[in-house]
Computed example of a mutant assay.
Amino acid sequence: MSTRTADARGRSSRSRRIAVLLAAFAFGSVLVSCSTDSGGSSVSLPTAPNASNFTGSAPSALASAASSIIGSARASASAAASSAAAAASAFEASVSADTARASAAAEKELKDVQGSGNATSEVAMTGLPRAETGGLLAVLVTITNKTDQQASYAVQIDFKDSDGKVVETRYVGAENLDPGKRAQPIAISRQPSEPQLTARLTKAQRY
């Protein structure tokens, strides 16, 4: 073996040892830099995400929640509708108890009356707020006896649609009203709130 060849092999062996040492040193440096002490900095290595930090619901849970919200909304709407219907019924019942007999008498009296009658100037109408009537269309009919004698009155109220067609007719009245006194019966439509109707004084008869 020649001296040149031996030297080459020696240099190659030293190179490999140096490379291994450098690699070991570099790896050791990484480990050191990852550790912490009171005077040095630290490097955080990536870690797996903590599942407990995530918020939200799985698709099936979201669907269940949406279904629950919709069901609750429907129940609330149904309860509100029932409450409104109860309020309307209560209002109508309270009015009907006081005016049923007078209404029947007024309808009977107006049956043979031609034209608008003899007392339209003694009758006025005012619409009542739906908030006070349970959502019903109702008008306050004010009857004033402008004569000098006691008299009874019969009044016909027609509820018309936007085309002027009579959809419903109601009768109210006042009996034995003294001179200068007034009565205020209420005429109530039983029709749905839509389409909107308009109340019109059709007949008023003093008898």
Rank of each mutant, 00 (worst) to 15 (best):
I157W: 00
D178T: 12
L22S: 15
D112G: 05
Q205K: 09
L128M: 13
V167T: 06
T133R: 03
A48S: 09
A85N: 12
A86G: 13
K146G: 15
S78P: 05
A65T: 14
S121W: 04
A93M: 01
V123P: 00
N145R: 04
S89I: 09
E92C: 01
Q114G: 10
S89Q: 14
R4G: 05
G115F: 07
V95W: 03
S189V: 14
A80C: 13
S89W: 08
S72Q: 09
S41Q: 08
A119P: 04
Q156K: 00
A100I: 04
E194Y: 13
S189I: 13
A80P: 11
G10Y: 10
L201S: 04
Q149I: 08
A19S: 04
A87L: 14
G56M: 06
Y207K: 08
S68H: 01
G134R: 01
S116E: 13
G10R: 02
V30H: 02
S44A: 13
N118D: 11
E168H: 03
L110V: 04
A100Y: 08
L45A: 09
T202D: 07
G71R: 12
T120D: 08
A104N: 11
A97M: 07
E194D: 14
R182D: 11
G180E: 08
A6M: 09
T198D: 11
E194Q: 15
S13V: 13
L31C: 09
A23F: 12
P59E: 05
A77K: 04
F27S: 07
T144W: 12
R170I: 04
K108F: 12
Q191E: 05
G134A: 03
L136T: 03
L110N: 01
S189A: 11
Q205E: 15
K181S: 12
A106Y: 07
L137V: 10
A87N: 15
G180C: 05
D158H: 00
S57R: 10
V141P: 02
S64C: 00
A86T: 06
A24D: 10
A106I: 12
V43N: 13
D178Q: 15
T142R: 02
M125D: 08
A204I: 01
A87I: 10
A66Y: 13
E132G: 00
V123K: 00
P49C: 00
P192N: 10
L136K: 01
V139C: 07
V113G: 00
L22R: 08
S193Y: 12
T99W: 00
A80S: 14
V43P: 13
I157T: 01
S72H: 04
T147C: 00
A204Y: 05
A48P: 03
E168Q: 02
V113I: 04
T169S: 12
G28I: 06
Q184F: 06
R170M: 08
A104C: 09
G135Q: 07
D148H: 07
L45V: 13
S189P: 03
T47A: 08
T99N: 01
A187R: 02
A204V: 05
V95M: 03
A86H: 02
A48N: 03
G56F: 00
A65W: 14
G28L: 04
A199I: 01
V141T: 06
Q149H: 14
P179G: 07
A87C: 08
G28M: 01
D37F: 14
I188Y: 09
S29C: 10
I143D: 00
R14D: 12
V172E: 01
K108Q: 13
T147H: 05
S116V: 10
T99H: 02
G115D: 04
G135V: 09
A199Y: 01
S67D: 11
A97L: 12
R74Y: 05
